[in-house]
Amino acid sequence: MTIQKPDVRPQRPWFSSGPTAKRPGYSLAGLPHGLLGRGIRAPEVVERFAHGLRLTREVLEVPESHVMLYTPGSDTGAVEAALWGMLGARPAQVVAFENFGLTWLADVKDHLGLEPEALTAPWGELPDLSKVDWSRDVVFPWNGTTSGVRVPDGDWIADDRQGLAICDATSAAFAMPLPWDKLDVVTFSFQKALGGEAGIGVMALSPRAVERLDSYRPERAIPKVLRITDGKGRFDRSLADGAAINTFSILTIEDWIDALEWARSVGGLAELIRRTDANSAALAEWVERTDWIDFLPERPEIRSTTSVCLKFVDPRLTALDEKAQKAFVTRFKALLEGEGAVFDMEPHRNAPPGLRLWCGCTVETSDVVAATPWLEWAFETALQSSPE
Protein backbone atom coordinates (compact mmCIF):
# COMPACT_ATOMS: atom_id res chain seq x y z
CA MET A 1 0.00 0.00 0.00
CA THR A 2 1.31 3.41 -1.02
CA ILE A 3 0.04 6.39 0.89
CA GLN A 4 0.50 9.97 -0.30
CA LYS A 5 2.54 12.32 1.85
CA PRO A 6 0.21 14.87 3.53
CA ASP A 7 0.26 18.50 2.44
CA VAL A 8 -0.46 20.14 5.80
CA ARG A 9 1.91 19.95 8.75
CA PRO A 10 1.04 20.79 12.36
CA GLN A 11 1.97 24.41 12.97
CA ARG A 12 3.50 23.37 16.30
CA PRO A 13 4.73 19.78 15.83
CA TRP A 14 5.87 19.23 19.44
CA PHE A 15 4.34 16.17 21.12
CA SER A 16 7.04 15.21 23.61
CA SER A 17 5.88 14.05 27.05
CA GLY A 18 8.64 15.99 28.75
CA PRO A 19 9.65 18.68 28.29
CA THR A 20 6.31 19.39 26.71
CA ALA A 21 5.30 22.01 24.16
CA LYS A 22 5.66 25.65 25.15
CA ARG A 23 2.44 27.58 25.42
CA PRO A 24 0.94 28.99 22.19
CA GLY A 25 2.50 32.32 21.24
CA TYR A 26 5.55 31.78 23.45
CA SER A 27 8.63 33.92 22.90
CA LEU A 28 11.83 33.73 24.90
CA ALA A 29 12.44 37.38 24.09
CA GLY A 30 9.23 38.28 25.91
CA LEU A 31 10.46 37.11 29.33
CA PRO A 32 11.48 39.75 31.91
CA HIS A 33 15.23 39.89 32.45
CA GLY A 34 15.65 42.61 35.06
CA LEU A 35 16.49 40.15 37.86
CA LEU A 36 18.95 38.01 35.89
CA GLY A 37 22.33 38.03 37.60
CA ARG A 38 20.86 38.96 40.98
CA GLY A 39 21.54 36.92 44.11
CA ILE A 40 19.12 34.14 44.92
CA ARG A 41 18.55 35.64 48.41
CA ALA A 42 17.91 39.19 47.19
CA PRO A 43 14.51 40.37 48.47
CA GLU A 44 13.30 41.15 44.96
CA VAL A 45 14.24 37.67 43.76
CA VAL A 46 12.61 35.93 46.73
CA GLU A 47 9.45 37.95 46.13
CA ARG A 48 9.45 36.98 42.45
CA PHE A 49 9.74 33.34 43.43
CA ALA A 50 6.91 33.82 45.94
CA HIS A 51 4.83 35.43 43.19
CA GLY A 52 5.31 32.29 41.12
CA LEU A 53 4.02 30.16 43.99
CA ARG A 54 0.99 32.42 44.45
CA LEU A 55 0.18 32.21 40.74
CA THR A 56 0.60 28.43 40.83
CA ARG A 57 -1.85 28.20 43.71
CA GLU A 58 -4.36 30.43 41.91
CA VAL A 59 -4.26 28.63 38.55
CA LEU A 60 -4.13 25.10 39.99
CA GLU A 61 -6.76 25.99 42.61
CA VAL A 62 -4.71 24.68 45.51
CA PRO A 63 -6.57 25.36 48.79
CA GLU A 64 -5.06 27.70 51.36
CA SER A 65 -4.79 24.76 53.74
CA HIS A 66 -1.87 23.41 51.69
CA VAL A 67 1.57 25.06 51.72
CA MET A 68 3.61 25.22 48.52
CA LEU A 69 7.33 25.22 47.84
CA TYR A 70 9.91 24.66 45.14
CA THR A 71 12.42 21.79 45.12
CA PRO A 72 15.56 21.13 43.07
CA GLY A 73 15.50 18.31 40.56
CA SER A 74 12.09 18.77 38.96
CA ASP A 75 9.28 16.35 39.91
CA THR A 76 11.86 13.68 40.68
CA GLY A 77 13.42 15.92 43.31
CA ALA A 78 10.00 16.77 44.75
CA VAL A 79 8.99 13.12 45.08
CA GLU A 80 12.35 12.17 46.55
CA ALA A 81 12.15 15.01 49.11
CA ALA A 82 8.83 13.58 50.28
CA LEU A 83 10.11 9.99 50.39
CA TRP A 84 13.33 10.82 52.24
CA GLY A 85 11.78 13.30 54.64
CA MET A 86 8.49 11.59 55.53
CA LEU A 87 8.61 7.82 55.05
CA GLY A 88 9.49 5.49 57.90
CA ALA A 89 7.14 6.87 60.52
CA ARG A 90 4.66 4.10 59.68
CA PRO A 91 4.51 1.21 57.18
CA ALA A 92 4.44 2.19 53.51
CA GLN A 93 2.73 1.01 50.35
CA VAL A 94 3.70 1.93 46.78
CA VAL A 95 1.23 1.77 43.89
CA ALA A 96 3.43 1.12 40.85
CA PHE A 97 1.88 0.68 37.41
CA GLU A 98 4.48 2.33 35.18
CA ASN A 99 8.14 3.28 35.08
CA PHE A 100 8.17 6.08 37.64
CA GLY A 101 6.01 4.25 40.16
CA LEU A 102 8.45 1.38 39.87
CA THR A 103 11.29 3.86 40.39
CA TRP A 104 9.73 5.14 43.63
CA LEU A 105 9.25 1.55 44.76
CA ALA A 106 12.92 0.75 44.13
CA ASP A 107 14.03 3.90 45.94
CA VAL A 108 11.93 3.16 49.01
CA LYS A 109 13.27 -0.40 49.18
CA ASP A 110 16.86 -0.09 48.03
CA HIS A 111 17.88 3.40 49.15
CA LEU A 112 15.68 4.11 52.17
CA GLY A 113 15.95 0.50 53.33
CA LEU A 114 12.23 0.20 54.06
CA GLU A 115 10.00 -2.76 53.31
CA PRO A 116 6.98 -1.31 51.50
CA GLU A 117 4.10 -3.38 50.24
CA ALA A 118 3.95 -3.13 46.45
CA LEU A 119 0.77 -2.99 44.36
CA THR A 120 1.82 -3.48 40.75
CA ALA A 121 0.17 -4.06 37.40
CA PRO A 122 1.32 -4.83 33.83
CA TRP A 123 1.81 -2.00 31.34
CA GLY A 124 -1.60 -0.61 30.39
CA GLU A 125 -3.29 -1.80 33.58
CA LEU A 126 -4.06 -0.36 37.01
CA PRO A 127 -3.61 -2.32 40.26
CA ASP A 128 -6.65 -3.24 42.32
CA LEU A 129 -7.07 -0.01 44.28
CA SER A 130 -9.40 -1.69 46.77
CA LYS A 131 -6.26 -3.31 48.19
CA VAL A 132 -4.71 0.02 49.17
CA ASP A 133 -4.15 0.08 52.93
CA TRP A 134 -4.69 3.56 54.32
CA SER A 135 -3.20 2.67 57.67
CA ARG A 136 0.05 2.99 55.68
CA ASP A 137 1.70 5.90 53.89
CA VAL A 138 0.77 5.39 50.23
CA VAL A 139 2.93 6.58 47.32
CA PHE A 140 1.37 6.62 43.85
CA PRO A 141 1.34 8.41 40.48
CA TRP A 142 -1.98 10.02 39.58
CA ASN A 143 -1.15 9.60 35.92
CA GLY A 144 1.39 7.16 34.53
CA THR A 145 3.40 9.22 32.05
CA THR A 146 5.05 6.14 30.55
CA SER A 147 2.04 3.80 30.41
CA GLY A 148 -0.84 6.12 29.55
CA VAL A 149 -2.74 4.91 32.63
CA ARG A 150 -4.32 7.16 35.24
CA VAL A 151 -6.41 6.61 38.34
CA PRO A 152 -10.02 7.35 37.36
CA ASP A 153 -10.86 9.49 40.42
CA GLY A 154 -10.08 9.91 44.10
CA ASP A 155 -12.91 7.80 45.49
CA TRP A 156 -10.46 5.04 46.48
CA ILE A 157 -8.58 7.40 48.83
CA ALA A 158 -9.92 7.13 52.38
CA ASP A 159 -11.12 10.30 54.09
CA ASP A 160 -10.17 8.83 57.48
CA ARG A 161 -6.73 7.62 56.35
CA GLN A 162 -4.07 7.26 59.01
CA GLY A 163 -1.19 7.36 56.56
CA LEU A 164 -0.23 10.07 54.08
CA ALA A 165 -1.40 10.11 50.46
CA ILE A 166 1.79 11.01 48.55
CA CYS A 167 0.86 11.73 44.94
CA ASP A 168 3.20 12.16 41.98
CA ALA A 169 0.95 14.35 39.83
CA THR A 170 3.46 15.67 37.34
CA SER A 171 1.57 14.68 34.18
CA ALA A 172 -1.86 15.28 35.77
CA ALA A 173 -1.45 18.77 37.23
CA PHE A 174 -3.20 21.48 35.19
CA ALA A 175 -4.86 18.76 33.07
CA MET A 176 -7.00 16.63 35.40
CA PRO A 177 -9.07 17.47 38.50
CA LEU A 178 -7.20 16.69 41.72
CA PRO A 179 -9.15 16.10 44.99
CA TRP A 180 -7.01 18.22 47.30
CA ASP A 181 -8.84 17.14 50.45
CA LYS A 182 -7.68 13.57 49.77
CA LEU A 183 -4.04 14.36 48.95
CA ASP A 184 -1.34 15.13 51.52
CA VAL A 185 1.67 15.54 49.23
CA VAL A 186 1.26 16.56 45.59
CA THR A 187 4.32 16.96 43.36
CA PHE A 188 4.75 18.15 39.79
CA SER A 189 7.26 19.80 37.50
CA PHE A 190 7.39 22.89 35.34
CA GLN A 191 8.36 21.07 32.15
CA LYS A 192 5.34 18.77 32.01
CA ALA A 193 2.54 20.72 33.61
CA LEU A 194 2.60 23.83 31.42
CA GLY A 195 5.58 23.43 29.13
CA GLY A 196 7.98 25.29 31.42
CA GLU A 197 11.71 24.72 31.59
CA ALA A 198 13.23 21.81 33.50
CA GLY A 199 15.06 21.57 36.81
CA ILE A 200 12.57 22.83 39.41
CA GLY A 201 9.77 20.88 41.07
CA VAL A 202 6.79 21.98 43.14
CA MET A 203 5.34 20.41 46.29
CA ALA A 204 1.95 21.11 47.84
CA LEU A 205 1.71 19.85 51.43
CA SER A 206 -1.45 19.36 53.47
CA PRO A 207 -1.51 20.17 57.21
CA ARG A 208 -1.05 16.43 57.87
CA ALA A 209 2.12 16.40 55.76
CA VAL A 210 3.49 19.48 57.52
CA GLU A 211 2.73 17.86 60.87
CA ARG A 212 4.69 14.78 59.79
CA LEU A 213 7.69 16.96 58.92
CA ASP A 214 7.40 18.80 62.23
CA SER A 215 7.17 15.68 64.38
CA TYR A 216 9.17 12.95 62.63
CA ARG A 217 12.93 12.83 62.33
CA PRO A 218 14.19 9.98 60.16
CA GLU A 219 17.32 8.22 61.37
CA ARG A 220 18.83 8.42 57.89
CA ALA A 221 20.88 11.39 56.73
CA ILE A 222 18.98 13.51 54.19
CA PRO A 223 20.95 15.23 51.39
CA LYS A 224 20.71 19.03 51.41
CA VAL A 225 18.90 19.20 48.07
CA LEU A 226 16.14 16.96 49.49
CA ARG A 227 15.97 18.58 52.93
CA ILE A 228 12.81 20.62 53.52
CA THR A 229 13.22 20.91 57.28
CA ASP A 230 15.17 23.55 59.19
CA GLY A 231 17.93 23.22 61.76
CA LYS A 232 15.39 22.37 64.44
CA GLY A 233 14.03 19.44 62.43
CA ARG A 234 10.74 21.15 61.58
CA PHE A 235 9.27 22.06 58.20
CA ASP A 236 11.20 25.05 56.90
CA ARG A 237 8.45 27.69 56.65
CA SER A 238 10.68 30.05 54.66
CA LEU A 239 10.36 27.71 51.66
CA ALA A 240 6.65 28.54 51.48
CA ASP A 241 7.58 32.21 51.16
CA GLY A 242 9.74 31.76 48.06
CA ALA A 243 13.10 30.85 49.61
CA ALA A 244 15.18 28.37 47.60
CA ILE A 245 16.88 25.24 48.89
CA ASN A 246 19.77 25.85 46.50
CA THR A 247 20.46 28.24 43.63
CA PHE A 248 17.55 28.09 41.21
CA SER A 249 17.53 29.59 37.73
CA ILE A 250 15.78 32.96 37.79
CA LEU A 251 15.16 32.67 34.05
CA THR A 252 13.40 29.34 34.63
CA ILE A 253 11.12 30.99 37.20
CA GLU A 254 10.32 33.82 34.78
CA ASP A 255 9.49 31.21 32.16
CA TRP A 256 7.17 29.48 34.65
CA ILE A 257 5.44 32.75 35.54
CA ASP A 258 4.91 33.39 31.82
CA ALA A 259 3.22 29.98 31.46
CA LEU A 260 1.00 30.65 34.47
CA GLU A 261 -0.01 34.07 33.21
CA TRP A 262 -1.00 32.50 29.90
CA ALA A 263 -3.00 29.85 31.75
CA ARG A 264 -4.83 32.48 33.72
CA SER A 265 -5.49 34.56 30.61
CA VAL A 266 -7.19 31.71 28.71
CA GLY A 267 -9.60 30.89 31.53
CA GLY A 268 -7.71 29.08 34.28
CA LEU A 269 -7.88 25.45 35.31
CA ALA A 270 -11.27 24.66 33.77
CA GLU A 271 -10.06 25.81 30.35
CA LEU A 272 -6.74 23.95 30.68
CA ILE A 273 -8.64 20.72 31.40
CA ARG A 274 -11.03 21.43 28.51
CA ARG A 275 -8.12 21.93 26.11
CA THR A 276 -6.50 18.70 27.27
CA ASP A 277 -9.73 16.74 26.92
CA ALA A 278 -10.29 18.16 23.42
CA ASN A 279 -6.79 17.12 22.35
CA SER A 280 -7.11 13.58 23.68
CA ALA A 281 -10.58 13.25 22.15
CA ALA A 282 -9.24 14.26 18.74
CA LEU A 283 -6.51 11.65 18.98
CA ALA A 284 -8.98 9.03 20.24
CA GLU A 285 -11.24 9.65 17.24
CA TRP A 286 -8.32 8.85 14.95
CA VAL A 287 -7.39 5.73 16.95
CA GLU A 288 -10.95 4.42 16.72
CA ARG A 289 -10.96 4.59 12.92
CA THR A 290 -7.39 3.35 12.38
CA ASP A 291 -6.94 -0.41 12.25
CA TRP A 292 -3.20 -0.68 12.97
CA ILE A 293 -3.14 1.19 16.30
CA ASP A 294 -4.97 1.02 19.62
CA PHE A 295 -4.67 2.36 23.15
CA LEU A 296 -2.17 0.63 25.41
CA PRO A 297 -4.72 0.76 28.28
CA GLU A 298 -7.78 -1.21 27.19
CA ARG A 299 -10.17 0.31 29.74
CA PRO A 300 -11.35 3.81 28.69
CA GLU A 301 -11.82 5.02 32.27
CA ILE A 302 -8.12 4.62 33.09
CA ARG A 303 -6.71 6.14 29.89
CA SER A 304 -4.56 9.22 30.29
CA THR A 305 -5.62 12.42 28.57
CA THR A 306 -2.09 13.86 28.62
CA SER A 307 0.54 11.20 27.93
CA VAL A 308 -1.49 9.12 25.49
CA CYS A 309 0.21 5.76 24.94
CA LEU A 310 -0.69 3.60 21.94
CA LYS A 311 0.23 0.08 20.84
CA PHE A 312 0.55 -1.57 17.44
CA VAL A 313 -2.12 -4.12 16.57
CA ASP A 314 -1.25 -4.70 12.92
CA PRO A 315 -0.28 -8.38 12.43
CA ARG A 316 2.69 -7.33 10.31
CA LEU A 317 4.18 -5.80 13.47
CA THR A 318 2.77 -7.91 16.27
CA ALA A 319 4.38 -10.96 14.66
CA LEU A 320 7.81 -9.36 15.16
CA ASP A 321 9.86 -9.62 18.34
CA GLU A 322 10.31 -6.58 20.59
CA LYS A 323 13.72 -5.68 19.13
CA ALA A 324 12.30 -5.56 15.61
CA GLN A 325 9.31 -3.52 16.76
CA LYS A 326 11.59 -0.99 18.44
CA ALA A 327 13.64 -0.74 15.25
CA PHE A 328 10.38 -0.01 13.43
CA VAL A 329 9.59 2.81 15.88
CA THR A 330 13.04 4.27 15.18
CA ARG A 331 12.32 4.36 11.43
CA PHE A 332 8.83 5.75 12.09
CA LYS A 333 10.26 8.55 14.23
CA ALA A 334 13.00 9.41 11.73
CA LEU A 335 10.49 9.77 8.89
CA LEU A 336 8.27 12.14 10.86
CA GLU A 337 11.08 14.26 12.19
CA GLY A 338 12.81 14.37 8.82
CA GLU A 339 9.67 16.07 7.49
CA GLY A 340 9.35 18.37 10.49
CA ALA A 341 5.85 16.98 10.97
CA VAL A 342 5.78 15.31 14.41
CA PHE A 343 8.58 15.37 16.96
CA ASP A 344 9.19 12.95 19.85
CA MET A 345 6.30 10.53 19.40
CA GLU A 346 8.24 7.48 20.60
CA PRO A 347 7.33 5.69 23.85
CA HIS A 348 9.46 5.69 26.98
CA ARG A 349 12.50 3.45 26.61
CA ASN A 350 11.12 0.95 29.15
CA ALA A 351 7.59 0.88 27.71
CA PRO A 352 6.29 -1.55 25.08
CA PRO A 353 6.91 -0.49 21.45
CA GLY A 354 4.27 1.89 20.16
CA LEU A 355 3.53 5.61 20.06
CA ARG A 356 3.19 8.26 22.77
CA LEU A 357 1.82 11.72 22.09
CA TRP A 358 1.40 14.49 24.66
CA CYS A 359 -2.07 16.02 24.53
CA GLY A 360 -1.79 18.49 27.40
CA CYS A 361 -3.16 22.01 27.42
CA THR A 362 -0.25 23.71 25.63
CA VAL A 363 -0.92 21.63 22.50
CA GLU A 364 -3.46 22.90 19.96
CA THR A 365 -6.23 20.51 18.90
CA SER A 366 -5.76 21.55 15.27
CA ASP A 367 -2.18 20.27 15.48
CA VAL A 368 -3.30 16.91 16.87
CA VAL A 369 -5.69 16.59 13.92
CA ALA A 370 -2.99 17.65 11.45
CA ALA A 371 -0.52 15.12 12.91
CA THR A 372 -2.65 12.04 12.32
CA PRO A 373 -2.30 11.85 8.50
CA TRP A 374 1.45 12.06 9.02
CA LEU A 375 1.31 9.15 11.43
CA GLU A 376 -0.50 7.12 8.77
CA TRP A 377 2.02 8.08 6.09
CA ALA A 378 4.99 7.28 8.33
CA PHE A 379 3.52 3.94 9.35
CA GLU A 380 3.10 2.65 5.80
CA THR A 381 6.37 4.16 4.63
CA ALA A 382 8.30 2.61 7.52
CA LEU A 383 6.73 -0.79 6.80
CA GLN A 384 7.79 -0.61 3.18
CA SER A 385 11.35 0.22 4.21
CA SER A 386 11.52 -2.63 6.72
CA PRO A 387 14.49 -5.00 6.21
CA GLU A 388 13.61 -8.45 4.96
Score class of each variant (00 low, 15 high):
172 A>S: 15
238 S>T: 15
308 V>H: 02
157 I>R: 13
273 I>Q: 10
303 R>H: 00
23 R>C: 03
227 R>M: 11
159 D>A: 12
132 V>Y: 10
274 R>N: 02
312 F>L: 06
97 F>Y: 15
52 G>A: 11
46 V>D: 03
92 A>Q: 14
131 K>P: 01
271 E>H: 08
210 V>N: 06
302 I>L: 00
333 K>A: 00
371 A>G: 02
266 V>P: 05
380 E>P: 04
79 V>W: 02
294 D>S: 09
289 R>A: 02
237 R>A: 13
194 L>Q: 12
39 G>E: 12
360 G>L: 14
155 D>V: 06
233 G>Q: 11
245 I>W: 13
142 W>I: 07
285 E>C: 03
155 D>I: 01
71 T>Q: 06
98 E>R: 05
257 I>F: 02
182 K>D: 01
84 W>F: 02
305 T>Y: 04
193 A>L: 04
245 I>D: 07
60 L>H: 06
1 M>Q: 13
325 Q>T: 07
357 L>C: 04
272 L>Q: 06
161 R>K: 13
304 S>R: 03
170 T>P: 03
3 I>E: 12
374 W>S: 01
175 A>K: 10
52 G>F: 04
221 A>G: 14
293 I>M: 05
326 K>F: 06
201 G>D: 09
254 E>T: 12
79 V>C: 04
163 G>Q: 12
90 R>S: 01
49 F>I: 02
288 E>M: 04
54 R>P: 01
196 G>V: 05
114 L>F: 04
270 A>H: 15
278 A>W: 07
250 I>F: 12
246 N>W: 13
203 M>Q: 15
229 T>C: 12
167 C>W: 11
79 V>Y: 00
104 W>D: 06
19 P>V: 14
223 P>V: 08
175 A>N: 08
129 L>K: 13
42 A>H: 15
295 F>R: 06
255 D>M: 10
297 P>T: 01
332 F>V: 01
204 A>Q: 13
150 R>A: 00
156 W>P: 00
313 V>I: 15
103 T>H: 13
21 A>N: 12
123 W>M: 01
102 L>C: 03
367 D>Q: 07
207 P>N: 04
366 S>M: 15
12 R>Y: 15
210 V>P: 07
249 S>M: 09
153 D>N: 13
236 D>G: 07
153 D>G: 04
100 F>H: 12
101 G>K: 09
247 T>H: 14
37 G>M: 10
58 E>W: 06
132 V>H: 11
84 W>E: 00
170 T>S: 09
13 P>E: 03
125 E>M: 10
13 P>D: 05
112 L>P: 01
105 L>W: 14
35 L>T: 03
216 Y>I: 07
181 D>W: 12
344 D>V: 08
268 G>N: 13
348 H>Y: 14
101 G>D: 05
5 K>F: 01
338 G>M: 04
365 T>E: 15
314 D>N: 07
136 R>N: 04
184 D>I: 05
156 W>I: 00
157 I>V: 10
345 M>H: 11
141 P>V: 02
127 P>R: 10
267 G>Y: 15
125 E>K: 10
334 A>D: 10
260 L>T: 07
300 P>H: 03
8 V>P: 11
